[in-house]
Design a protein around this nucleic acid. Structure first.
Lengths: 247, 247
DNA sequence: ACCTGAACACCGTTCAAGT
DNA sequence: ACCTGAACACCGTTCAAGT
């Protein structure tokens, strides 16, 4: 903790190219783990690989992290922690709850798109309590979510109901969007086979002869409208909430 | 492929208690793998454990399965294959598209609730093509889905749009429902610590002192209304589709 | 044809030992 | 206090060898 930020790099350089490295720390380890997941996928996040990427042996990590499960838990915590919870300056406090939810939704979406390889962890790892729903799975965020809505006129019951439907909405849309953005990225478990590189991309060689409708509609199925779908579905969710509130 | 279905079971019994076992086969292996996942979770599905549960060494599996990745792929395929795609007798062919989608949604939900531990695989493993969206991620199902809607009056474009919004809806709701039903089941990575069993269940000991609103609303947050939420959200999705079609 | 023993590379994890 | 070497149990996978 009491480390000089950057002197003239007196730290003894080790064998591989690690950063100047103000020694090890849990935060540093989690940061590096997230970067590793982003670059190579979750399965590449190995205690040994993570250690090596920090210029250290795997065993050193166990001082700061309680095993691999705890490491992944920490990664999720760190990522979810990056969700802004206090509306910034761009958000007037007297804007309605619709603006609040719009802003919230887009902040979670930003997180998902920045870390598409890590988002499935946020989505599928068991939360601390069963009523903490991914991706809004931290007490801090749920508290802010509920308060944000109550300050804007929601009753207790309406806020809780909104938390539920909002979670489902975010989970479904963002997980799909991540799945699509992960295909074709550096997710190949094995290095790309260059021998038969005459196959341009890996989705064209599906045999569609038995599925005429899919074959006919493939161009339209291939179009990516995830952004627009997200906005539309969000808009409709807000309309739906509005209807349910006034009844 | 050309195997006698069931004779008088002449197969020699081996050491442990495995079923009469008409020899090994890919289908038998996948069945057993699914049962193992249901009972102990995905991480417990090990080549060695799976082999042992079939009364065989792990290496034998490699005759029928192309490694663990292929095994998991086969599990997903098998599960998705269990989704009925031709409306049964209960469904009149002249029922509207709403009835068709209702029936379809509930069949996928049945699959998710029958295999809550396996559903995250269906949800997050990369599909064969990026435009095949979980959980409707097989050509057979997409073909049936599109045809089912077209036979009931959808245009091509409307059917494709419906496929997209329907996938997001199912994914979000069912994944959340699975997460909730997996908490507290046989998902403990380690055998439950019986030493300090004075903690009744594992969600009560969260420190809520810094989160007054969550603390106050915890009873309502804990209520499980997943079933009703599913039905309501589905109803609203259908209404929304109806509106968009007539405009 | 179908299964296995032995072996290899890699993984998570522990712990006594180094500095 | 912080890191490491050595070791252990377990994993996926290959392959020559058994029957």
């Amino acid at each position: 903790m009491a480390d000089p930020p950057t002197r003239s790099e007196p730290t003894t350089p080790r064998k591989t190219s690690e950063p100047p490295g103000p020694r090890l720390s849990r935060a540093l380890i989690l940061d590096r783990a997230i970067r590793l997941i982003d670059a190579q996928g979750v399965t590449a996040l190995t205690m040994r690989a993570l250690g090596a990427s920090l210029g250290v042996e795997a065993m050193s990590l166990y001082r700061y992290v309680n095993g691999r499960e705890d490491l992944l838990e920490g990664v999720v915590e760190q990522l979810v922690g990056s969700i802004e919870v206090e509306p910034g300056e761009r958000m007037e406090p007297n804007d309605g709850w619709q603006a609040f939810l719009q802003w919230f939704a887009h902040d979670v979406r930003r997180l998902a798109l920045e870390h598409p390889a890590a988002f499935p962890l946020i989505a599928t790892r068991h939360p601390a309590a069963p009523w903490l729903r991914p991706p809004l799975r931290s007490l801090r965020i749920v508290e802010a979510f509920l308060n944000g809505l109550r300050e804007r006129g929601f009753t207790d019951h309406q806020a809780v109901t909104a938390y539920r439907s909002f979670s489902s909405f975010l989970l479904g849309h963002l997980l799909l969007e991540c799945a699509m953005s992960c295909v074709g990225t550096s997710f190949a478990e094995e290095p790309v086979d260059e021998g038969n590189a005459d196959l341009p991309n890996d989705d064209a060689q599906l045999d569609l002869t038995d599925y005429p409708t899919v074959a006919r509609l493939q161009p339209q199925l291939t179009e990516d409208h995830t952004r627009a779908e997200f906005e539309e579905a969000l808009e409709h969710l807000l309309v739906r909430m509005d209807l349910e509130m006034s009844q």
